[in-house]
């Protein structure tokens, strides 16, 4: 939903970044307003995953230039946990397994950290269980997963559902979903996409990082950006994704060259 008067949530200006000595982002510009769904597409190595991790504050990436404002605030100055608390969410491509740490406990601590930031009351274990059981339905997840360790022994699909469950609990203002469709069969993809659609509203925004069109058949983006060589090469509407699917990325190579 595009509303030119909607508040600006995320403003990326001329962002440069590198991993170790390798420059990856070479001047990314992107503005996201409330209510919008953006898709960032591109080949492997185009920099799209770097962009998502960098926004969440991953320590391996260092910013060498440019700025990122989240509701006018300098996002890059914040610790990863602070970014999460104010409403920036990253759905990981490969969610990490954390043996021994109970999934339920993890979800509760995270949810309460966000609630405290928003000035809401912390939920005790009982109130939280009620909440989490309600949100579980959104991703059609078996409550048994709450009793297990964080992501430990989860299948690819289960891990991604756990990501969307976290998103449902944290209610972010900007959700960045990094290759959420990778490794999912068609049923799991539908469930995950359904969850994302239900969570998208007029006050928040979604950034889908994806390689393929198939996720965009289920979640219709307002904008499609094509990334290559660390920059956004082209921006268009959903038809751009269709065009990419048909003609591939070869034209991109030519433009970069």
């Amino acid at each position: 939903m595009i509303r030119p008067d909607a508040p600006l949530l995320l403003e990326i200006r001329d962002l440069h970044a590198r991993v170790e000595d390798q420059p990856i982002l070479k001047g990314v510009n992107l503005s996201v307003r409330a209510g919008e769904i953006h898709a960032v597409m591109g080949r492997n190595g185009s920099g799209k995953s770097t962009l998502s991790k960098l926004l969440a504050g991953h320590p391996a990436y260092s910013v060498t230039g440019g700025s990122v404002l989240f509701r006018g605030q300098d996002l890059l100055a914040l610790q990863p946990e602070q970014r999460a608390r104010i409403g920036v969410f990253l759905g990981f491509q490969y969610p990490v397994e954390i043996p021994g740490v109970s999934n339920l406990e993890f979800l509760r601590v995270a949810t309460n950290a966000r609630r405290v930031e928003r000035g809401d009351e912390e939920l005790d274990t009982f109130a939280f269980e009620d909440l989490v059981r309600e949100r579980l339905k959104l991703v059609q997840m078996d409550p048994a997963f709450l009793e297990r360790s964080v992501n430990e022994g989860f299948s690819g699909g289960e891990k991604k559902r756990n990501e969307i469950l976290q998103m449902a609990l944290l209610e972010p203002l900007v959700a960045i979903l990094d290759e959420t469709d990778s490794g999912l069969d068609i049923d799991a993809l539908r469930i995950v996409a359904g969850g994302v659609c239900q969570l998208a509203g007029p006050d928040n925004a979604t950034l889908l990082i994806t390689h393929y069109q198939r996720l965009l058949d289920l979640i219709t983006p307002d904008y499609v950006h094509v990334m290559a060589a660390g920059r956004i090469l082209r921006t268009g509407g959903k038809e751009l994704a269709v065009e990419l699917e048909r003609s591939g990325y070869d034209w991109v190579d030519q433009e970069v060259a």
Binding site: P59, Q79, E81
Partner: peptide, 11 residues
Amino acid sequence: QLFYLQSRGIG
């Protein structure tokens, strides 16, 4: 693992 927990708001 640390980053994952931090990215969910856990200090």
